[in-house]
Design a protein around this nucleic acid. Structure first.
Lengths: 342, 342
DNA sequence: CAACGTCATGGTAGCGCTACCAATTGTCAG
DNA sequence: CTGACAATTGGTAGCGCTACCATGACGTTG
């Protein structure tokens, strides 16, 4: 007499409808969908056609509740507009697009507290895996990651103490290679120009400093940084500041390519010859660096590949076979171009 | 005798634990969390302290199942690395970061079929709202959107026939304004250079054509396009092609700023004077266009604002007060700069 | 002062699915 | 031929939460 059907649910078919239509138990339908190998050929076919006829799609919320595990990858990056992280995210999406996993992306705005907050939001969903940028989590975030009960991949950097898995490269070595290249090319008064100065930029700066120290060229006045978010405009302004401070500046290592581009444009505008008067090195090697005039030397990083690898490692861990290598260093490559070809 | 506690769940406290501790019914806890106004001051305080002591966080999956509504915004964009969409997405994130809503972002790769697939994945989650880029959904996608049972906002464009809500601007008018500006500035052999050529680019092209026709300047050979994804590199190559085809070319309207930048760099490389010999206009007005040398005229679009407005409209609709204006045109602004200052 | 709201609270019954534990059948070694 | 065991299928009992309805304690009103 009662009609419980479609009382609350929008009337979409449920697993029970499929089971009834196929003349089997609900649990068998559930199995046929998740582990087809454990259901006989016959039933599987019957169930499949019932699913198609009804247009049945499993409810991910019910599934997550019953199995205490959501088919969701939680991803935390510090910025969505920074091309570098956008590429990592693209790699993650491309690797996950044909599987059952959904992606929940969080923007930490380079803030440890915001990262913590987002982890608190992500945790209760019981995600299948977490991917977070960087290795500088707050102690609270670190604890949340350790107790998340799922694989965790830290990306973009390598470090000595992974929470679980890790894919990236050494920003220190990248910065060092950039500075060494400028030194070898014959530049002497080599500045460091950096915006935002997040932990990764700090490590690039440390690499720069190590190279400069080793060559006996270090001078604190050569360093120009700001916590302000990076932009091409800012690159121009910081370069002006740097030149005002050290008129003899003959080279700059920029903490990223946006800054480098700003420097390049300012050189054009001020008729400063590149690479003759000033040499420029960027970081990340965005597409445009090769096309710029003059083309700009930059440290190539494998952002897209980092995203892909992070997913591959997480998926392996989910399936029970954890990668033998917990920390993967994808390295970088210094791309020598016209901007330092003196 | 049985110990059902923590049999499957990871032992996290549930609403029942809070209710027991606070000496109230579970439903009252639920209400205190969702509609504090409907619970007396006393109980609310008791419940709050129980929540804090236990560290209770509601399970979003259970909540979604019971209420047939997930606190999720589904967002579909054609690209994650294209700065334009990244900014829209950033606007969405910033507007949603302090509310209860999570965001699920899908990448359609400029493919209608992929968009359809993603909508099929998003639908069963019963999202609170959907935000999709563009107005050119396939008929199937359109039906999915119409029957989604939640507010839908189409962003980045305006058009005559919204599924539900819409916020964007007219790409046709933007393209027309760009071409008209070049014509007014005295350029005559004005090319159109475009990569990817998604529907929005097509409409910019149509606007260009309208302006050129009106001035009696249209010539099919002036148009150089490719379906290949846009990049600065490609801008250089397409410009070379265009010049080879029409050596008398004296201006270009580029379908986006990446292409414009490629053209600018190629002009430098080939010693083509800008704006004297060739005028350049871009589209979107990325940060760097103002800093470039010479600075590049571009059509400013309000991507971030579009994201924010889309969320505001969706939230209003969720709360029951649908915006009086279903279609919001945020317009654009032609930024005149050195690259067309002849 | 009876009838009728209104407010605050709680009990019950699911939401749609899967973990867990049978039950049934067929297969095969001993 | 029998017991053991694997393969297949199903029933039951939740997962943690909220919709719905009920209850009792207060005003409020004619």
């Amino acid at each position: 007499m009662i009609k419980p059907r479609s009382r609350r649910g929008g009337g979409r078919p449920t697993i029970a409808d499929v089971a009834r239509k196929a003349g089997v138990g609900a649990i068998t339908v559930s199995r046929a969908l998740r582990e087809p190998g454990r259901v006989s050929e016959d039933l599987r076919r019957q169930i499949e056609s019932a699913v198609n006829e009804l247009g049945y799609v499993p409810d991910p919320n019910a599934r997550a509740l019953a199995s205490a595990r959501a088919e969701v990858f939680g991803v935390l990056v510090p910025s969505l507009t920074n091309n570098v992280f956008a590429e990592v995210v693209r790699g993650i999406y491309d690797s996950l697009s044909d599987g059952p996993f959904r992606i929940q992306l969080g923007n930490t705005h380079y803030s440890g507290l915001e990262e913590e907050r987002l982890l608190q939001v992500f945790g209760p969903q019981r995600p299948a895996a977490l991917i977070v940028a960087g290795i500088d989590q707050t102690p609270a975030s670190r604890k949340l990651l350790e107790t998340a009960g799922c694989p965790v991949v830290q990306v973009m950097e390598t470090g000595p103490d992974p929470v679980d898995l890790m894919v990236g490269f050494s920003h220190f070595e990248g910065g060092k290679a950039a500075a060494e290249h400028l030194i070898e090319a014959g530049y002497r008064r080599i500045g460091f120009i950096g915006a935002r100065m997040d932990p990764r930029s700090q490590r690039r700066l440390a690499g720069y400093r190590a190279a400069m120290d080793a060559a006996g060229l270090f001078d604190a006045r050569l360093i120009t940084t700001t916590p302000v978010p990076s932009s091409v405009t800012l690159g121009r302004e910081l370069f002006r500041d740097a030149l005002a401070k050290v008129p003899s500046l003959d080279g700059v290592f920029c903490n990223n390519d946006d800054i480098a581009l700003g420097v390049l444009f300012e050189c054009h505008r001020a008729s400063i010859a590149v690479p003759k008067t000033v040499g420029i090195v960027g970081f990340n090697d965005l597409d445009m660096m090769e096309v710029a005039f003059p083309s700009v030397t930059s440290v190539r990083t494998y952002r897209y590949e980092i995203g892909r690898r992070a997913v591959a490692m997480a998926l392996a861990a989910i399936e029970g076979n954890r990668p033998e290598q917990r920390v993967v260093d994808l390295g970088f490559e210094l791309k020598r171009r016209e901007s330092t070809a003196r």
